[in-house]
Design a protein around this nucleic acid. Structure first.
Lengths: 331, 331
DNA sequence: CGCAGAAATGTAACCGGTTACAGTCAGGCC
DNA sequence: GGCCTGACTGTAACCGGTTACATTTCTGCG
């Protein structure tokens, strides 16, 4: 394998000069630079990045912690991360945690092991144990973590949920069901808060029995809908806290022989690709997924450049996407 | 930062012994091992993987080249890759190529730069230029590449397409449209071949005008359907070469006020999650996505252990998933 | 021409592991 | 006791870059 010393010999210069031609070309006189570049071309030399990383104590790699890559929302966020990482010369290591905190810890400790420079977490799990993984460059995206020390970028989840609920109320709905995510998830809590605020503002009662537990997956949305429709007095609208759940719910309702939105309105959250292709197309909240990714990566980059982002809490705007899955309740 | 030398000093042994306790514990006497382990525990020492990788000339990392992570089929394959990589102590670097071969090359050359040990490619692009990237541990999955030197794992795409076409014919369809992927894609070619074989076997003519070009995406499926339905004599069934296209096509048909499968049968390929949640649920070919990933990673692991897999061409079985989007043609 | 200071280049230490090879030591055997 | 063997441990070179610091070469100017 050709090394920097081979090049230096071939070009008749020192290794330092070769190294400089690669990283600080303007510190080298044009004549020498040309000699070195010729030698590099001639040999097809490619520097050993692993050696470079070792000696510079950087890895030019970041890890992204995601509970589930096959979730279409997350995969778009990752896409955004990847593209801006690429442009900045960083690689992204994928960390599918399956929600398990040991896996999360294992990935986070890659930073300590110098395999990665920083972490972007897409789920709000807690890699910030004081005992274990702390003090690593980290930014959180798409979730709502309370910890003020973690720079984060999020949606106004409560506001969005409130807006959506208000929209349903404005259509005339008074009994609005909710298919929520895991109760311990802050995302669920925030969106539920928005829902309750809207109810309250409209003078409608909050009925515990109208909220069904789910886990953001399509199948859980299906179950939630089945459960709520079996109620003595079923809701006239169903607010699913993720599009996947909404799609599952629409399916369940369809199986019962009911029509959306005539018999029941269903709305989602996320605006994944398939929301548009539902029958009827799904009314939902659009989250700028790619932008989440690229902004998060941007923040991480500044962190890595030494910026102090503690307390940073950037917000990205949501957008109501009114399609055809919600309408007026039946008389 | 604690290094192996700190540990050696603390434990009163040499660095070699410390190194050995970590990598070859049985080469070290129990007493010494205990001393070293105590020192490690005491300091919370974690070896610098970047140094280790540098000195062993391995990275314990592989890169996966994918044209588009947000494609739900690919993201499941990646999931499979990731899980078996994790178990084997490997990390996976994500390479979203957006179909651009320069990006592909850039990622592939990470192997030469010792940032990765091998590559799994999910799309059949050609990182095997004799001039540039060749001779790196590589396996291809989910695609059909012709190059015999690349170990690969694929579906019997032609067979699957043939089976699906035969199914449509058995329902009584005689004019079967196709929404294909990019024509230069081998995937398209193979599936199209299966389609033609089935037609031929049934004595049906192949009608060029019934095949519409797409790119596997939902929106291209939508266009394909629109184009085909505008024909003087539109097809009674539409075989979309990906589920995403099928979903787009169903949408387009729905917008025209037609019913699936009464007015037209639509079938897909892949069996992504949403296929089940379509209205009506989509008849399709199931590809074992996660298994593709784990098997491909398995092959790459044996390659990395020095096995010779050239000429290897593993096949994974497809499965016809008959749901409700295809029926008999209208009289 | 001589000299200061800047610019270009070279030398060698350093990053933190692994590992070839050498050395030590205990136990077994004659 | 002397010697051999094998188990264990230590020394130091090595991986291939970067970079602090020293040294040489250039410039411009009095």
């Amino acid at each position: 394998m050709t090394t920097i010393r081979d090049i230096s010999r071939l070009a008749g210069v020192s290794v330092a000069t070769v190294s400089r031609t690669m990283s600080n070309p303007d510190k080298v006189s044009p004549a020498t630079r040309e000699k070195v570049e010729a030698a590099i071309r001639e040999t097809g030399y490619m520097p050993d990045m692993s050696a470079r990383n070792f000696s510079t104590r950087k890895s030019k790699t970041i890890v992204v912690l995601v509970p589930d890559i096959s979730n279409p929302f997350f995969s778009r966020v990752i896409r955004g991360i990847e593209h801006t990482a690429q442009r900045a010369g960083y690689s992204v290591l994928l960390g599918d945690t399956r929600g398990e905190s040991e896996i999360e810890d294992a990935y986070a400790s890659m930073v300590r092991a110098r395999l990665a420079d920083g972490v972007i977490q897409l789920n709000g799990r807690l890699p910030m144990e004081n005992g274990a993984v702390a003090d690593i460059p980290l930014v959180n995206a798409c979730d709502c973590v309370e910890d003020a020390h973690i720079p984060k970028i999020q949606l106004d989840n409560a506001g969005a949920a409130r807006a959506m609920t208000e929209y349903l109320i404005s259509l005339g709905h008074k009994r609005i069901g909710v298919a929520k995510g895991p109760s311990e998830s802050r995302l669920t809590q925030e969106r539920l808060r928005g829902y309750r605020e809207a109810l309250e503002a409209a003078g409608l009662p909050f009925d515990e029995s109208l909220v069904a537990r789910g886990d953001f997956s399509a199948s859980s949305g299906r179950h939630a809908a089945t459960q709520l429709m079996a109620l003595g007095k079923p809701p006239t609208a169903l607010f699913c806290l993720s599009d996947e759940m909404a799609i599952g719910a629409m399916h369940s309702v369809w199986e019962m022989g009911l029509k959306v939105p005539n018999d029941i309105s269903i709305v989602g959250f996320d605006d994944i690709l398939f929301a548009e292709y539902c029958k009827p197309p799904l009314t939902t909240i659009r989250q700028p997924a790619e932008e989440f990714g690229s902004k998060a990566m941007g923040m991480l980059l500044s962190l890595l450049q030494g910026a102090h982002l503690a307390e940073t809490n950037q917000h990205l705007p949501y957008e109501m996407v009114i399609r055809q899955s919600a309408g007026r309740p039946k008389a």
